[in-house]
């Protein structure tokens, strides 16, 4: 525990780590601000002005009449069938007005954000924490101070565990704190706008915060382990770049069935979003819907399968770096 405390102090004193931690708060704050701004409700004056402008445009009435004649081509399925002409006219006018005004801004919906910006902040924080893990131990290798540390604590396993523990604890705390604050602030905005929060969303948000924090901590550990393996922050950044660029191509050309399933980013999304849908060209399932055969390559990747995949990669990297750190000479 003493070593863990020492490593947490070292992390706190490292300016680069502090900058990355501040960025882990600021970037989600910017995403929050963007979400709040992008879902702000229209004022009555805005709606009235846009409506008047739209309805004054030539061709507006003609478009409404076209809709009234063939409502099935315009209205959403849940608005069909239209009971009487008055209803059809009213619905068509509202729809065409919305189209022509360009007032498409959706109101804030926490359920929708679970699959949007909620995933985004977790991924951004994971990326920043990976950099933090890499630069945290990268400085030890670059300065040569790792050997100094081992002259005070020669048990390398303990030194590794303390460093990894410091990054994991920081990642978990940061992920939980930022995630919880982010969602609480978003819920506060929804509340202030009198927007309803669907049943069960609060629980889903809670689990997403937890899964996001685990991802953030795991990413930090991955960054640390890769740097402990290659003993260089630059090497770690190179590896990350290679994984993002070359890894995707490599997986795509390897003779896997449904290579999309093995893409790291898909698994990350599946973990945070508690499962995701992806499309594969291999082995499409085809059904006859009466008009002919309709084929779909839609597949579901569950959070469990994604977690197993990501943990396998993390475990392999940690095992390799631990083995080299405990056996190789220290420069």
């Amino acid at each position: 525990m003493r070593l863990l405390g020492v490593e947490l102090t070292r992390l706190r004193w490292r300016r680069a780590c502090l900058v990355l931690m501040v960025a882990s708060v600021l970037v989600p704050a910017l995403i929050w601000a963007g979400t709040v701004w992008g879902t702000r409700p229209y004022s009555g004056a805005e709606v009235q002005r846009a409506t008047e402008q739209a309805q004054a445009q030539p061709g507006f009435d003609q478009e409404v009449r076209r809709c009234e004649r063939k409502p099935e081509q315009y209205l959403a399925p849940d608005q069909l069938p239209v009971e009487d002409e008055a209803d059809a006219s009213e619905q068509c006018r509202a729809l065409i007005t919305q189209w022509w005004t360009g007032l498409f801004r959706e109101p804030l919906d926490l359920e929708r954000e679970l699959e949007g910006s909620g995933i985004g902040i977790a991924i951004v924080m994971a990326g920043l924490m990976m950099l933090l893990g890499a630069t945290f131990v990268g400085a030890d290798w670059a300065s040569g101070s790792m050997s100094n540390q081992l002259l005070f604590e020669p048990r390398r396993l303990r030194v590794y565990a303390a460093k990894a523990g410091a990054v994991v604890v920081t990642g978990l705390l940061l992920g939980l704190a930022v995630g919880a604050l982010w969602w609480a602030a978003l819920a506060g905005v929804a509340n202030a706008r009198d927007l309803p929060i669907a049943d069960g969303v609060t629980g889903e948000v809670g689990w997403q915060v937890v899964r996001g924090a685990v991802l953030v901590a795991g990413a930090g550990l991955a960054g640390l382990a890769t740097t402990m393996l290659f003993r260089s922050t630059v090497a770690t950044l190179g590896i990350l770049f290679a994984v993002v660029i070359a890894g995707t191509f490599l997986i795509a050309v390897l003779p896997f069935e449904s290579p999309e399933r093995w893409m790291p980013h898909l698994n990350v999304v599946a973990w945070i979003a508690d499962g995701t849908v992806y499309y594969s060209d291999d082995g499409q399932t085809c059904v006859d819907d009466g008009t002919g055969m309709v084929c779909s390559g839609e597949r579901v990747l569950g959070a469990g399968a994604a977690a197993a995949y990501l943990l396998s990669i993390l475990g392999a990297v940690v095992a390799a770096s631990l083995a080299t750190f405990t056996r190789r000479d220290i420069p």
Partner: peptide, 14 residues
């Protein structure tokens, strides 16, 4: 045991 091995090695920003 206290030791200085080769050049001093400390974290430069500390």
């Amino acid at each position: 045991v206290g030791a200085v091995v080769e050049m001093p090695k400390f974290l430069p920003h500390f």
